[in-house]
Nucleic acid binder design. Sequence first.
DNA 1: TTGAAAGCGCTAACAT
DNA 2: ATGTTAGCGCTTTCAA
Lengths: 334, 334
Amino acid sequence: MTVRLKDIADDLNLSKMTISKVLRGQTDVSPATKARVLQRVKELNYRPNITARSLRTGNTYSMGLIIPALSDPYFADVARSLIETVRGQEYGVLISSAEGDPDTERREIGLQLSRQVDALIVASVQESAEFFAGLGQQRAPLVLIDRKPPSFAAHFVGVRDQDIGYLAAAHLAERGCRKIAYLRGARTAEADLRWSGYRAALAECCVSFRPELVVEPGEMQPNEYRRGYDAMVRLLEGRIKPDGVMCYADLLAQGVIDAVLQRGLRVPADVAVIGCGDLPWLQQLRVPLSSMNLSGEEVGKRAGRLALRALTSKESLPFRNVLVPPRVVVRSST
Amino acid sequence: MTVRLKDIADDLNLSKMTISKVLRGQTDVSPATKARVLQRVKELNYRPNITARSLRTGNTYSMGLIIPALSDPYFADVARSLIETVRGQEYGVLISSAEGDPDTERREIGLQLSRQVDALIVASVQESAEFFAGLGQQRAPLVLIDRKPPSFAAHFVGVRDQDIGYLAAAHLAERGCRKIAYLRGARTAEADLRWSGYRAALAECCVSFRPELVVEPGEMQPNEYRRGYDAMVRLLEGRIKPDGVMCYADLLAQGVIDAVLQRGLRVPADVAVIGCGDLPWLQQLRVPLSSMNLSGEEVGKRAGRLALRALTSKESLPFRNVLVPPRVVVRSST
DNA sequence: TTGAAAGCGCTAACAT
DNA sequence: ATGTTAGCGCTTTCAA
């Protein structure tokens, strides 16, 4: 049924070794036999059994990627770019999703290791670093992306959170905004970094910080659009009306835009709005939305390179900590 | 470094075989040794080398899923549900994306086969059936999903396209709409089926068909939101004003809604709007959008079951053709 | 109840 | 330039 090296060998009255050599591009084979072999390989549509090869060689030429959610476009970017990056070195990528659940994540990682992936790239949803401490000892090098337990030492590739807040605020300031509101996200370490970037940009651009223009994440509003809309309505009723708004997420920003337009004001002439996440499908609506792109592509590329390096360097590579800058994507809303 | 069966065996003064038996739940092992083994296995955090196992047993307990695009939320649904479905039988899923390119798809399928997946589930972007004719002869059973070359015989799971048009139109008619417009998609076989469903529903609900309420896909407007907006503006300027609009895609629908609201009309009171695709992020905007959900979850589940059956049935299963119904998701826009 | 031998398909190391 | 041997980690088969 399935064609094996031996079948081709028997077929051509050669040994398995010769076929194997040809397929791996060894030079100690006569051009004539080489041609014969290649032809027959093609005719029979032979596919090497990677499983068997890796049992022998010890590496599968595959990496495992574990992401928090399959439907998150950001990680789709990361995955695409990772795949493309390592393909050049003949590596394949096994994608698993933790679906937001730490236990699922652990199980998927276990499965990947059972399948002998040569390296692991993980955007983890674990709360604790314990689990990874165990992983650090595994055969496969580990590259964390997007998030990392603070005190844990490992390779890491992520986005420079502070720059998100900084660049967005600076962009608005550059556009002439002087009263820049900020719709905050949940109280996480990352969110705090963005926030401090916002503060830094204001200071640097000589825009005064006004606490009444900062909106904390409401507790009980699960609908982000609505939250953005309501927040903006309140801001526009306030004493100081913003002329620029930065939002922790694109959906918030859409709500903000609609609130502004509904009041008869213009975007960006009266109020400029910038979102974060650069979600597809949300960018080409009423007012095409400027947004902070979190450089998933770059993260995937750097993670791939890092994994490749860890794989090829004999010595264990000292832990690298790569922070890529986010990008301001300017559209009509600013 | 990596723990093997032999390590545990030596450790406990047993043979590899005994360890292997315990791990596979064979009964011919004394409870005492079994306990000892399990304990040591846990302590050493042993993970069986699936690669080696499958070399011996001939199956890897993995399926390959090839989708057209990683960032398509529909296929994310399919993947999630497929993974969950086959997990119960201890199968894992390798996900690859063709990124819309037939050549990439072929290469990814080749890689998956090289990695010895036991079954292939493919949402193909191939134009011709030729390629699959070759695949049909492979060891791994093939299940096509979402799309299938018409004349090609294979297992297939997809959505009943005609019902998309039918259910959407019927839903609008039920809501009292009598002038139901249709914004068509590209001229594909699937689109034609949806269209014929629309026609059938109109006939059945005694709503007269009006050609001037049908908008063909414009050639040169790549922005779907804009296309929906413009189309609706034109419809509202026409002789017959629609009181219901069904759209080939959710983004079109968002454009339609904004056009309606801008004219001072209400959604759904004056014009009801329904989209198609049920894209996340696009559902909770100004007017939460009713949409046709294409049952990716169900498709994934059925494809998984079909693959499992093909894998377990000794005889080759006669080709099944499974068409799942789409679902109307009613929100505020209708 | 336990274990020895053989072999899955491939390749590293070493003959010829 | 071609082939032989051995073995990767596991499981099937059969013997003790």
